[in-house]
């Protein structure tokens, strides 16, 4: 059971120890805030107020963040903190506080109205949809167990258990839905926001707010936003389902070869 995790746990531990040593070395020097400064400069300096440019920027940085988390790293946008939201989020909040509504806020397409709200159900890559997809269609005991175990943290947008347990990290099968699901969510959100079907999420929500509730709470309880969240969560699940099936097949093949290999070694 969970052979893949068993095999990968040793290299993961070694990598963690090495990176702890390196990051400690960086921290003891005065340049500890250098990486942060670079990321902040990239993600939040002089954001453009033109909708199309902020749209491209959110998608670009979002895509980069998703790919980076697929590789086990992190980009400027994170599922668990909102530190790199740009000034346009503050402008939106001010508008909403002034007018006592989120409808009509000036910046529809920044990181908090699109990425943090609709692309991070269950963490980077909308992995809550992966959990639902597995629980829905999968018959693989390992997949189901990992999904059940990582359900609670995933509700609060922490998907590390799932990422290394399935595994999703570096798993080419899941690369496509891992990028596609959040991106499709964001595209749907752009359309819905542009057609004024729902208000943008402008209010800040506490860190760790369950992904599917961010839009609902960030719009101060808009039912349209909640409905949209349910639809887009469903869409993401549909996106993940075929890949779950492929992964299951691949795993079955793998296990068969593993068993055969075991037999031949015994002989």
């Amino acid at each position: 059971m969970l052979q893949r995790t068993g095999i990968s746990i040793k290299p993961i531990l070694i990598a963690i120890v090495i990176s702890v040593i390196i990051s400690d070395l960086v921290t003891v020097t005065f340049y500890s805030n250098l990486p942060e400064t670079i990321i902040t400069a990239l993600s939040s300096t002089n954001p453009s107020s033109k909708p199309i440019l902020s749209l491209l920027r959110t998608f670009g940085l979002g895509l980069y963040s998703i790919i980076m988390s697929f590789l086990g790293w992190s980009g400027p946008y994170s599922a668990t903190n909102f530190a790199y939201a740009d000034n346009s989020a503050a402008t939106n909040l001010q508008y909403a506080l002034n007018h006592h509504t989120a409808w009509g806020a000036p910046n529809l397409f920044n990181s908090s109205t699109l990425y943090h709200t609709f692309a991070t159900y269950g963490g980077q890559g909308a992995t809550l949809a992966l959990i639902i997809a597995i629980l829905w269609v999968s018959r693989d005991r390992d997949f189901i167990n990992v999904s059940r175990w990582s359900l609670i943290p995933s509700i609060f947008n922490v998907n590390s258990a799932l990422m290394s347990g399935i595994p999703v990290f570096f798993n080419v099968i899941f690369l496509i839905p891992f990028i596609l699901a959040p991106m499709v969510n964001m595209i749907l959100a752009v359309i819905a926001l542009q057609l004024h079907l729902m208000p943008p999420a402008v209010y800040s929500v506490p860190v760790g707010t369950p992904g599917p509730l961010i839009a609902f709470l960030g719009t101060n309880g808009s039912w349209q936003a909640l409905l949209f969240t349910i639809i887009s969560l469903f869409v993401s699940t549909i996106i993940y389902i075929p890949f779950v099936k492929i992964a299951e097949q691949v795993k079955l093949q793998d296990n068969l070869t593993l068993e055969k290999g075991g037999v031949s070694r015994e002989n």
Binding site: L135, S147, I155
Partner: peptide, 19 residues
């Protein structure tokens, strides 16, 4: 195995509603 899975999905939505 989906029986187990479906139960968990239902739990997920119950938890979300409670939160």
């Amino acid at each position: 195995a989906s029986k187990k899975g479906f139960k968990t999905i239902i739990w997920l939505f119950i938890i979300l509603t409670i939160v």
